[in-house]
Amino acid sequence: MRIFQTLQIAMLGIAMCVQPATAQVANSLSKPIRLIVPFAAGGPTDAAARAVGEGLSRALGQSVIVENKPGANTIIGASACKAAAPDGQTFCIFLNDTVTINPSVYSKLPYDSDLDFVAVASLVGIESAIVVTADVPVSNLKELAQFDAANPGKLNWGTFGIGSSAHLYLGQANRALNTRINHVPYAQGGAAVVSGLMSGDIQSTMLSYGLVNQWIQKGKLKAIAVIGESRSPYFPNVHSVKEQGLGMSPRLWIGMFAPSGIPAAAVEQMNKAVNRILLDPAFQKQYLETQGLTPLVGTSQEFADRIRRDRAEWAAVASATNVRLD
C-alpha cells in the first residue's frame, strides 16, 4: 500500500500548484465541500478526487473533504451521494461503472442513475490495459488464449468488483477468445488487485496505467492489450483490444456528480472551477500525464451526453456476456 499512499501525497502537492482564477467564483457556503468517493483510498478515483479537491479548495477559498465510502461495487458510495442534501456542498467522484455499467448488470439498484444524480463535470479519461504477470509467457490476446487452452484452470483474472468494467472485459475476452479464465473479484478496489498480482493469487487483469506502470517498468507485469480502439502513447508498443479482435473498446473515465435537486447555478459554478483546474498546464504535466490520465473538459450537458452514449455501449456488452446480478 506504500506506493498508493505516496501517490496520494504526490497528488495533493501537485494540485497545490493550480492557481486560483483572477476572478474567483463567488461562493457563500460556510461549511466544507464534501467529495464522496465510492472506493477505498489508494486507487485512481481516490487520487483524482484528492488532487482536484485541493485545487478546488484553493480556487473557491473553501475546505474540501474527501469521504471514502467503498463497497458493493460502488453502490454504497452512490447511495450516500443520493441521500446527501442537494445544497451544493456535497459532490461525488464516480468511476464510470457507477452510472454506465451498474444499471445494466443489476436487476435492482438503490439509485436511479438518471433521476438521482446530476452530471456536473467530466474529469479525466483513464488509459488502461490488460496486463499479465511476468511469468505468463504471452505478449498478446491470441497467445493468452493459447496459453489458457494448454493450461486449463491456471489463469485467474482479478477485478475490482463483480459486475465492474474489468469483469465485463473478462466476460468479453472469454467469449471472444474461447478462454475459460477464472474470475477473482477484489471488493477493496484496484490497489487490492495489484496486491493479488504481486502475490501470485491472480495472473491477469485490466487496470489503469497509474496502477500498473511502475510494475511494468520493474518487469513484474506485461501489458498485452490497450483498452480502446487505437494504441495509446502510454503503451506505445501494445495493440489495442479493438485491433486484436476483442470486439469492445469502451474507455474508463472519472467524473463529478451531485445529488439530484442541486441548484443549476451551483452546477455551473463547479463545472467552470473544475475545467480551470483541468486546463492548468502544471496540473496536466505533473499529475495527469504521469498517471496516464486525459483531461475531459466540457459542459455539464456534454458530460451527460457522454454518459448516455457509454451506457448504451456497456449495456450491449453486458447483454453479450450475460453478466447479470440480483
Rank of each mutant, 00 (worst) to 15 (best):
Q19R: 14
A23P: 06
K31A: 08
V37T: 00
A40T: 11
R50D: 08
E54T: 14
R58E: 13
A59I: 01
A59R: 08
K69A: 15
S79R: 11
C81G: 09
A84T: 01
G88V: 13
L109W: 10
D112K: 02
D116T: 15
A119T: 09
V124E: 00
I126M: 13
A129V: 01
V138R: 06
L144K: 06
A150N: 03
L155Q: 07
G161S: 06
A173K: 04
N174I: 01
L177H: 13
T179H: 06
I181H: 11
N182I: 03
V184P: 01
Q188P: 00
A191W: 03
G200P: 13
G200D: 05
I202C: 04
M206G: 12
L211N: 06
L211V: 00
L211H: 08
V212C: 12
Q214V: 06
W215I: 10
W215V: 04
G219E: 02
G228D: 14
E229N: 14
E229Q: 13
P233G: 00
Y234R: 08
P236S: 10
H239R: 14
S240N: 04
V241Y: 14
Q244I: 06
W253R: 13
I254Y: 06
I254R: 02
G255H: 07
A258P: 00
I262Y: 03
E268K: 13
Q284R: 11
Y287C: 12
L288S: 07
T290W: 09
T290P: 07
G292C: 00
V297Y: 05
R306E: 06
I307G: 01
R309L: 10
W314S: 09
W314K: 11
A315D: 11
A316E: 15
R324Y: 02
D326C: 00
